[in-house]
Design a protein around this nucleic acid. Structure first.
Length: 257
DNA sequence: AATCCCCCCAACCGCAGCTCA
DNA sequence: CTGAGCTGCGGTTGGGGGGAT
């Protein structure tokens, strides 16, 4: 048995798209909207398979697409996101408005991979991560909350978030004998507390966030990655966040790696 | 000018996950 | 519950542009 191929190989144009094919596809999608890719070629009168149409539209014809000229900020963000997420190109692209997963993948494979590998050797010589001062914990808590917590959940003002973080640090220092750094613990504690502060008691995303921690410390980088990925893939998050805000958060990550 | 070679990137392919009957 | 169909994702390929010889 096996699956039917996505389209018959006969009577199908392959390879580079012509200007006329582009025009037909654009006109069809303008009139009928995206989706239903399988039936689109027949309806539009294109001798292409649906997959090919989808790819052409998403990677090339979409009106909001930026092409080429990847800025230093974007490049930096790609490197940092790749460090956290690996080859999750669609997730990475989702955080770079106007960029496609294909473009980022190509950019990484042809240029950034080599660049990062070059940096890798230099990084070994860097000193160990410096300790975080309480004031920095406070700043990070505010930044992180600003970037990652959806507006409807931010029931506390940024200044209040900072106070909470400072307080948590002070409390944890007085009776801490664990090998876990209490300041980072406090930082996450504040963030999780904030996320839960929307008053909902129903099992939801904030409980899901807690689940992988179990008895482990929230300081675990693996856990933080899981959490980060969860935030990243959450469709309710605003996509127009400033690159700088995200870069700031990722800088926090860097200091602990 | 002609040929070779390398590299970029658009496009393809196979698979996984989701939806729905 | 199951399987077919569809969509989206990530890995890979190969055409073509451009630099080197």
């Amino acid at each position: 048995m096996g699956r039917k191929p996505c389209c018959s190989k006969e009577d199908i144009n392959r390879g580079a798209w012509t200007a006329e094919e582009d025009r037909i596809l654009k006109a069809y999608i303008k009139a009928n909207g995206e989706g239903r890719w399988r039936s689109l070629p027949k309806k539009a009168g294109l001798k292409r398979c649906g997959k090919s149409c989808r790819l052409r539209w998403l990677n090339y014809l979409r009106p909001d697409i930026k092409r080429g000229n990847i800025t230093c900020e974007e490049e930096d963000l790609i490197i940092r996101l790749h460090k956290l997420l690996g080859n999750k190109w669609s997730l990475i692209a989702g955080r770079l408005p106007g960029r496609t997963d294909n473009e980022i993948k190509n950019y990484w494979n042809t240029y950034l991979k080599k660049k990062v590998q070059g940096q890798h050797q230099a990084k070994r010589c860097q000193p160990a991560a410096k300790e975080l001062a309480p004031e920095l914990v406070r700043t990070k808590a505010i930044r992180c909350a600003t970037v990652f917590i959806p507006p409807q959940h931010t029931t506390k003002e940024p200044a209040m978030i900072g106070e909470l973080a400072t307080e948590k640090v002070a409390n944890s220092r007085s009776n801490d004998h664990s090998p876990i750094d209490p300041r980072e613990d406090a930082w996450w504690d504040v963030l999780v507390g904030l996320d839960k502060s929307n008053g909902s008691t129903a099992p939801g995303r904030d409980l899901d966030l807690m689940r992988p921690w179990g008895s482990e410390s929230p300081c675990s980088h693996y856990t933080r990655r899981e959490m980060f990925e969860d935030w990243m893939s959450d469709a309710t998050l605003p996509f127009d966040m400033e690159l700088k805000s995200l870069a700031d958060f990722l800088n926090c990550e860097d200091e602990w790696l």
